[in-house]
Every structure is written in structure tokens, then in C-alpha cells.
Design a protein around this nucleic acid. Structure first.
Lengths: 323, 323
DNA sequence: TTGAAAGCGCTAACAG
DNA sequence: CTGTTAGCGCTTTCAA
């Protein structure tokens, strides 16, 4: 293995000088700089980040935790984070977590001294790990806890309600997908409820369908929710869904049951994943700015001192599934 | 930061003994073992993998390179690899690569001394990096190069042709998605051509539609390919697609153009991603065993000595999009 | 402007 | 069965 020592010897300088050139910090004569660069080139030297990280106490990894790897939304987030991170010399690692493994995943990440953890999942880890993370200086962003990142769907949901009102519709179902506990503080859920009242739409507890996402995959949850809704004899004008994947499942079941979309029922998803343009019919959804979110994650990871709150407002993307 | 030294002091033993207990290798008296475990527990000690990795010359990361993060197929692969990897104390990191960044991504991975690289992308890196990887002992699996992993779609494609023959159909298009160069050695492409001849189906160069995937996203490529096919006045009985996402794009365009599926045209995808059960109509596809693939990747990463070839045979999954 | 030396936390001979 | 010692490749004082 080529190390800095080899470079130093070939260039006829000390190891420290090599470090100075490579890091760009400290004074080095132009002559030595050139010699070092030539040696690096000649030897095909690639620095060992492990050794560097050992010094710096952290690895250059940002871990992203998600609960459902089947949701394309996460791919898009990761993809965007990746680009941001690479620019800053960081790597993004993806982990799928559930109730049972979240603690061991976190422990593993601590062992690896990752730079930060972005937890996009619903679950969180034991208090003791939180303390360790804090002690070590590893950043943690718990989205569902809603620390520094606020996803606000209200304005988008208002838009939907307005459209429906204009068509004389007033029965909107909400496919929560999650259990009652998990959805309770969710902005989508709160906004839905707020709008039902504010717009004087029909309030019916049977319009809210809970589910066991993410234990079960989002497609099935969407499909089952629609079945449940129809089986209960609830006829609605519009179905608002937790996310696009749930919506696609719902769309599919409605199609199978011969319900016409949007003539009989409108369907609206959430997150505006790429796929939503390609459903039959194309799915209306809320765009919450995936790239901007990714940017915010990485930024708050790299410069934690400016602990600002990031707020994202949803924008309705109208497509044929919405009347 | 709590280190092994703190544990050793609290337990009243040497650092080496702590290592022995923690690694499970070497002799330690039952008494000391207990003392060490108690100390670890008490101090909430979590080992520093960076230091460990520095010794072992490698990090415990396996990097997966993909060219198209919008394809759910990769998510499923990663997800499966993740589970496998975690069991072996490894982490899986995901990177999206393209023509322009592949070399810098690889350099970055080398700098991080990842344990191995699974390159699922079409592109590969400069020869000089290949050499460095070899020198350092970093494993590289180039799927498209077809080193150790062979994805064989032939048997599945034969099944499709047989079904079509039974219905008296004999015109099959192939949406290659990729450019002529990239697809040339692809097993799907070769199998398609073989079958056209073997079954005595209509051979028409216009039935093969190339595209600029992965530069352009798979959905659009599928959509455009169908447009191209129809614009050329080619009427076919079945459309075979590079992957499910291309197929979904194709499905969408056919639907828009009022083509009935499967009555007018059958559509068959590739990879059998979760989404394919939820299209309208549900998409027939080839299952190539995502879990088994993931398993093979990790296995060959962990024990490279047994350089066996892994062969996967596609299995046709019939759904409503296929007559 | 440069170099020597200590140390990051852990592993792996080697000696007891 | 246990401890001492010498690194892994890099960064960072501190002197020169």
C-alpha cells in the first residue's frame, strides 16, 4: 500500500509537508508543492480516509434511516442527499429500520462513528443511545420528532378542499396508513381534520382509515384501506393518502372494483414521486421539495452550529386523478 | 470518549483482555470475562470501528453503484443486501453513478478503503483504478461486465414466446432502452434475438427500439419507445422491455394512445419489482431472484476465495398484461 | 517554511 | 490464561 511516507520519500520532503500540500493548509514552498504533486501522481497515491477519520473522531458517513425501502420517495431523497454529500466529501449510507432493529442499527452506527444520522423513520432509539450520540457529538435528526424539519402540507391540502368545494363535493376520506398513535401528530392528518371543519365538509370517523404501515408494505395498505372504506359502505368524493405509494395501491383497488377516477372518486397522493406521473390515471400529489429537503439535511449535518428550523410547504400538483 | 482503556481500568485487567472478551477470540478466565462485561455495561462502552478498521486495512462498508436511482429494483436489492450485510457486521452504502462521476466516486471509495464494490451500473472506471483496487485487495463486482454473476433470462423469454405462439401471435418488439452499444451483449437482448429465430417469429429491425437510458429516466424512455414504435407504423403483439420501469412507461403511453392491453398488445417487464403488481393492468415480468442475488453479492464479498460463478435464471411471472 | 514526535483507539505478535 | 509492545496511516502540536 502506498502511504504518505512513500510520497514523502519520492518527493524528498517530510510526511508533514505532504499533508500540508494535500490538505491545502499550512505553508509550503511552491517548489515542494510541485514535487509532492508529481510524486502523488506518479505513485497513484490515494489517501487513507480511515486513518484520517481516526484522528478526527468521526467517519465521513451520514446515515439515513428509513422504515420502508419500497417507497421511491426515499430513493429520491437519498439520491439528492448523495449529490450534496459527495460535494462535501461525505458518503450517505442507507438503512432500513423497524421496531426490532432500530437500537442495534444505531449502535452499529455509533460504533462506526458516523458523522450524523438522519432518521426518516417513525421509530426512534432508546434514550441511552441518544445520550451516547450527544456525548460523542454525532448529529441526530429525527424527522418524525419534528426537531428541526417541519413539513407543512396545510396549504396544499387547503387547495384540494377548495377544488372540491367548487365542484360541490364535500366528502373526503383520509387513508392514514399508519396506526392511530403514529398518525396523531402528523401534519397531514392535522391539516385534513382542520380543513374538514374549516370547509364545513362531512365529518365521519369512518372516513379515516388507519393501517399497519410500515409493517405492511404501502401498496397493500392502500389497497386494503380502499376495501375497508367500500366495505363499510362509505361513498366519498375524494381519497387523500399518506403517500404516493399508498395512493397507488388505492388507485389499483378502485380500478379493480370498477370505480371511475376521477369521475366517481378523486385520489390524491403525497410526496410527488416520479412514478405518480405514470399511474392510470396520473396521480395528483403534493410536492414538498425533495431536493431542498436533502440539501437541508446535509447542511444541518455539516454546520450544526446554525440550528435553524427548516420549514417546507407542500405544493399541490394537479393531475388527472383529481377532479 | 470511553475507550477500551477505561473499560480495562474499571475491570482491573489489561486492554488486551478487554479485546479478547469483546472479540470472542483468545482465552480469558470466566472471572475476568464477567468483570469486563460488567465494565462495558456500566460505561456504555461502544467500540470504535474506525480504529479497528485502520488495523484491518478496510472499512466495513460495501458500496453499491447504480446508474438509476429511480428504479425500485435497486431499492429491493439494497434492502436485501442490507439485511445480509448487517448480519455480517457490514454496512451497505449506495451511490448513483454516471459517465462523468464514476471515476471520482471510485476514488472516493478507495480513499475510504471500502471492503468491496458492487457495480450494478453500465459504466465502469478507468483501468488505473481497477489496478489500485486489485493492489489494495478491494473486491469489485462488475455486473455488466458479467464476471461472476450471470443473469440468464433465456428460459423466461422462451416461456413468453411459447405463450404467444399458442395464441397465434408472432410479432414481438424489444424495448432495449439502452443504446445499441450497451445492449449488444445483454442477455435479454441476445435471448430475444435467439427466440425470434428459433420460433420463426417476424424479424424486423424496426421492432427493436433503442434509447438513451440511463441518461434519461426509465419511465420516459419507455414512453418514448412506444411512441417511436407506433409512429413507425409497426403493429406488434407483444412488447418486451428492458426492465419494469421502462415497461410502466410503455404501459402508460399505450394506455394514453388507447391501445388495449393485453387484447391489442401484451407487455412484459423485467425484474418483477413490487410496483409491477399495481399497474393497470398488472404487469407480467421476469423474476430473477432479488434476495438470492443480494445474498450472492454479500457472500462473494465476504469470502472471495471461493470465486464461484453465480447463475440466476429468470422465471416468468404471468400477470394480466400478458395474453 | 519545514520536520520530528506524539497520539487517535484498536489489533496482533510475542513473551511471560 | 494475561500483559507488554509495536504498529495501522494520518493529523497536530511544537521546535527548529
Amino acid at each position: 500500500m502506498i502511504t504518505r511516507k512513500d510520497v514523502a520519500e519520492l518527493a524528498g520532503v517530510s510526511k508533514t509537508t505532504v499533508t500540508r500540500v494535500l490538505s491545502g493548509r499550512g505553508y509550503v514552498s511552491e517548489e515542494n508543492r510541485k514535487k509532492v504533486k508529481a510524486a502523488v501522481e506518479k505513485l497513484n497515491y490515494i489517501p487513507n480516509m480511515i486513518a484520517k477519520n481516526l484522528n478526527q473522531k468521526f467517519s465521513n458517513i451520514v446515515a439515513v434511516l428509513v422504515e420502508d425501502l419500497t417507497n421511491q420517495y426515499y430513493l429520491q431523497i437519498i439520491s439528492a442527499m448523495n449529490s450534496e454529500a459527495m460535494r462535501a466529501g461525505m458518503m450517505v449510507s442507507l438503512f432500513s429500520v423497524n421496531k426490532n432493529n432500530i437500537n442495534s442499527v444505531i449502535e452499529n452506527l455509533i460504533a462506526n462513528r458516523v458523522r450524523g444520522i438522519v432518521n426518516l423513520a417513525l421509530y426512534t432509539c432508546d434514550k441511552r443511545y441518544i445520550d451516547i450520540l450527544k456525548n460523542l457529538g454525532i448529529f441526530l435528526i429525527n424527522i418524525e420528532g419534528g426537531n428541526a424539519l417541519i413539513l407543512n402540507y396545510e396549504s396544499g391540502i387547503i387547495e384540494v378542499f377548495e377544488r372540491l368545494r367548487q365542484c360541490g363535493k364535500k366528502r373526503v376520506a383520509f387513508l392514514a396508513g399508519l396506526s392511530k398513535d403514529f398518525i396523531a401528530n402528523d401534519n397531514r392528518y392535522l391539516s385534513y381534520n382542520k380543513c374538514v371543519d374549516a370547509f364545513g365538509f362531512v365529518r365521519d370517523d369512518g372516513y379515516i382509515i388507519y393501517g399497519n404501515y410500515p409493517e405492511e408494505d404501502a401498496f397493500s395498505v392502500g389497497r386494503k384501506s380502499v376495501r375497508e372504506l367500500l366495505a363499510a359502505g362509505k361513498s366519498v368524493d375524494c381519497v387523500l393518502c399518506l403517500n404516493d405509494v399508498v395512493a397507488i395501491g388505492a388507485l389499483h383497488e378502485l380500478w379493480k372494483q370498477g370505480v371511475r377516477i376521477p369521475d366517481d372518486v378523486s385520489v390524491v397522493g403525497c410526496d410527488n414521486i416520479l412514478m405518480s406521473s405514470y399511474t392510470t390515471p396520473p396521480l395528483a400529489s403534493f410536492d414538498i421539495g425533495i431536493e431542498q429537503q436533502a440539501h437541508a439535511f446535509i447542511e444541518s449535518m455539516l454546520s450544526p452550529e446554525k440550528q435553524q428550523d427548516y420549514v417546507f410547504n407542500a405544493r399541490l400538483v394537479v393531475r388527472e386523478s383529481l377532479i
